[in-house]
Structure formats: structure tokens, C-alpha cells
Design a protein around this nucleic acid. Structure first.
Lengths: 237, 237
DNA sequence: ATCGAAGGATTGTTGAACAATCGCTGGTTT
DNA sequence: AAACCAGCGATTGTTCAACAATCCTTCGAT
């Protein structure tokens, strides 16, 4: 019988069996490129993505761009308005709450279950990474470290699907954070929280760590909702 | 606010100004059709889906089928093997554990947060639906009722993203359950659990309801892993 | 000024075409 | 006989060109 290797496409990094150079399809590379521009803020929320423009710009066919759009739409990074085009997703207040509902479910669950010493060490490493970024005054690195921290928490669950979901949620948030990061100290305020959560985790106090994380998420959501106040996301779902 | 300017002339034309009649695109309809065949078990795990065959079969273009494939792949219902084709996903033991990890995170979180009386009523309705199905000896309806039950629990969180994730997870499980449903009594064993969870929820004992749900999920996972053990899975080659 | 009708642009979908790749068949070698 | 290698057929990946459908805008009529 042909036992299929778990050869997922989305993470797609496990080319263990064959020496075959894993060359992503053109559509995936287009999606990667757009995802990058989205993360860098080169494409602002609400911006329109014209098929022909991107196709010509990247030297690919319209159909390929279309496939890339489908991928990004499934990740909620763009939204399709039928017969009108695709637009960079712009999150409204209810979307923020929604995203944090997902984060509360996933992160708290992973934290409550705990993890191996290596997993905990990864969380600790992310905390220290954040400290170094703060000391260097690099808020971009601070944001990355913060995402590493929460990613490491979810990674404790050792679930591919949970990791994928978390990665998508973090990508959605990154899309939104470009407004918030105007405040260079935005992430620094969360450093003590991360430190406290990590300490509780290291001490094996899982329930306490979970409570701290919940409080952190609630506060973070409030902060983000507040920042969001000035601009209304005019996006009808 | 609603500028109604229709219904006087243009006999054959549908007014789609505000009352947007959502007509799914062809690609979506193809995806729906395939999703249906997947749910019905017409397409067994490991089966190959040839683009040209499906295109010809449904009377659409290959490109459209391709878009539908992308959608299904993002839902993990099919897997793409580069240059080889797409195959109906076949879940292994680790996938079952993975799926249940997601369910534990999402369902327990939603249950712990509780819901409005209407939400609880929806959960109760799903329990009663299951009872009726059991009384009628309809295991297909029993499975549907069971999914309604868990869907209603997640719906309490009022999160679009969580609902989407849960729907996809349930679709993945349905893909797998066609082996398990050979046992007509498969769902009946869960009826007392659902009843107990619902009662705790109605009584406002959220922590107790969450504990019951956790125990249920663990037991369900064990049962499913056991069923999976005897069969190595449909081979694709 | 408001309303309705052409115009232009973009998306949705199709069909055909071609290169790249995979699995298989069949012959060759040891 | 078993293993290896080349060639063949089939399918996927990608592009291109075309057309219908739909939307937004502009212009003209009332």
C-alpha cells in the first residue's frame, strides 16, 4: 500500500524523502510575493488589486494571479467582491474582536495543556528576543518577537492545524498593526506580560499562566480597538 | 438610505442593487458539488481527481475546476501532489489527534464562555434532534444532529472565524466518518454525553460542562483511532 | 438637479495550446 | 531472471486570446 507522506502544501517545507528541489508553483510564488507586500505594508487595507496589473507587474498570467488571489482570500488577507475585484482586507472593530476570540481559544488551550521543556525553552527564547529588541529600540523586531512568543505558545500543542490557524491569524493582525506600530513603544508594554506568563509556564503553573494570558489578550484587544477608532473599516462582509 | 429605483421598467432584469442575490461563481458551485460528493462518500479518501474528467463531467473549464481544487485544498479536503494531481485527503492517526486538538481548543473555549439563552436553546434543539434520529434508527440523521450539536456550541462564541474553522474541521471529520458509520449505533453512544453537557450548560455550570465536553472529546478520539486501526487506508497507487 | 442610458474598464469563464513532469512499458544488460 | 535505462503517453502547470457579464463613470435627456 502506498503510505502517503504527510506532504502538506501550505507549510511545504518538509522535503525529506527526495533531494528534489521543492520549487513552489508560480501561483504560490505570486501569493508569497503579495503576502510579503501585505506584511510590509506596501499594500494598505482597502487597496484594490487589479488582476491585469499584477499579472503584468510580476510577469505572469492572469489565471495564475487568480489562483494566488484564491489562496490569499482563503487566508482572509484579501476579500473578493464579485465582479468588482479583490481588495486588501480591512479589519473593523468586530473583526478585531473576532480575531481575539480565536486567539483566546487557541492560545489558552495550548498553554493549559503545557509542553515539553524544549517547547517552554522556545517560549523563553521569544521572551528574551523581545527584550533584546526593546533594548535596541527596534519596534519592528519587537513585533516579530511578540509573534514568535505567541507562536511558540501555540506550537506547544504540536498541532499542524492549530499552527496553521495561528499563523493565519497572526498574518491578519500584522495586516492591521501597521497603524498601531506608529507608536514605537507599542510592544514594549507587553514585555512584562510575556515575562510573567513565561515564568508561570516554567514553574508549571499552567492555570495561572492561562489566566495571565487571558488578561493580556483582553487588554491587547482593548488597546487595538482604541487605536482603530479613528478609521472605520468600510468593508461589508 | 436605500435608494430603490426598480420594479417599474426593465421586465427581464433582476434588481441587484441592495438585495444582492448571491449567485455563487461557477468555481464555487464546482467546489460545492465536490464537497457534497465528498460528504456523501461518493469520493473515497485517496481517490484521484483528474482535472479534465471533472471538467468534462460538470461541463466547465479546466481552469474553473482548478480554482475549485484550490478552494478544497485550502480546506484540507484534498491534497495536491505537484505534477501528479489532487487526491481526496485520507486522514491518518496523527490527523485524527490533530483534528481533536483543534476541537478541544475551540469547543471548550466556546463552552466556557457560555452564551445567550437563544444559543443554549439551539444546543438543546440539537440534542433533541439527535434523540429523534436515534428513535427513528436513522444514523445518517444522527451524525448530522451530532454535528449540529457541536456546531451550536461553537456558535455561542459568535465568531465568524471560529465558525468557519469548526465547519472545516467537521467537514474533514465527515470525510473520515464513512468508515465509522458502518456501526449504526455509533452516534447513539454519544447521546447521553450531549444530554449531560447540555444540562450543565442550561444550569449555568460552565466549567462542569467544559469538563464533560473534554472527556467526551477524548473518548470520541479514542473510539475513532480504534476504528482507524484495522484499516490502513485506501491506497492511491 | 435628477434620472436614465451609452461607454469603457474589469472581472468571470472558456478553449486551445505548449512545456514540464510523472508513471509506465519495453527492451537491454548483467 | 532481476535490475537498469530510455522512450512514450498521459496529466498537470502555465500562458494566451477571446468573449460574455457586470460594474462604475460619464454624458445626455427630462
Amino acid at each position: 500500500m502506498a503510505t502517503d507522506r504527510t506532504d502538506r502544501t501550505a507549510p511545504g517545507r518538509l522535503s525529506a524523502s527526495r533531494l528534489r528541489v521543492v520549487v513552489p508553483s508560480v501561483a504560490e510564488r505570486v501569493a508569497d510575493e503579495l503576502r510579503l507586500q501585505l506584511a510590509e505594508g506596501a499594500l494598505v487595507p482597502g487597496a484594490r488589486l487589479t488582476e491585469s496589473t499584477i499579472a503584468e507587474d510580476l510577469g505572469v498570467s492572469r489565471n495564475t494571479v487568480r489562483e494566488a488571489f484564491a489562496e490569499l482570500a482563503s487566508e482572509r488577507l484579501v476579500v473578493r467582491h464579485p465582479n468588482r475585484g479583490v481588495f486588501v482586507a480591512s479589519l473593523g472593530a468586530e473583526d478585531i474582536h473576532d480575531v481575539y476570540t480565536v486567539r483566546r481559544a487557541i492560545e489558552v488551550s495550548a498553554l493549559r495543556a503545557g509542553g515539553s521543556p524544549e517547547d517552554v525553552a522556545a517560549v523563553r527564547a521569544a521572551v528574551e528576543e523581545g527584550k533584546r529588541a526593546a533594548a535596541a529600540g527596534d519596534d519592528e523586531a519587537g513585533g516579530t518577537a511578540n509573534q514568535h512568543f505567541h507562536g511558540a505558545i501555540v506550537a506547544m500543542a504540536k498541532s499542524q492545524r492549530l499552527n496553521t490557524i495561528m499563523a493565519q491569524v497572526l498574518a491578519e493582525m500584522r495586516l492591521f498593526f501597521h497603524k498601531a506600530t506608529a507608536d514605537a513603544l507599542f510592544y514594549q508594554r507587553y514585555l512584562p506580560d510575556n515575562e510573567a506568563i513565561c515564568e508561570a509556564l516554567e514553574a508549571g503553573q499552567l492555570d495561572r499562566a492561562a489566566d495571565l494570558l487571558l488578561a493580556y489578550l483582553d487588554r491587547s484587544e482593548d488597546n487595538l480597538t482604541e487605536v482603530h477608532g479613528d478609521d472605520g473599516g468600510a468593508d461589508a462582509g
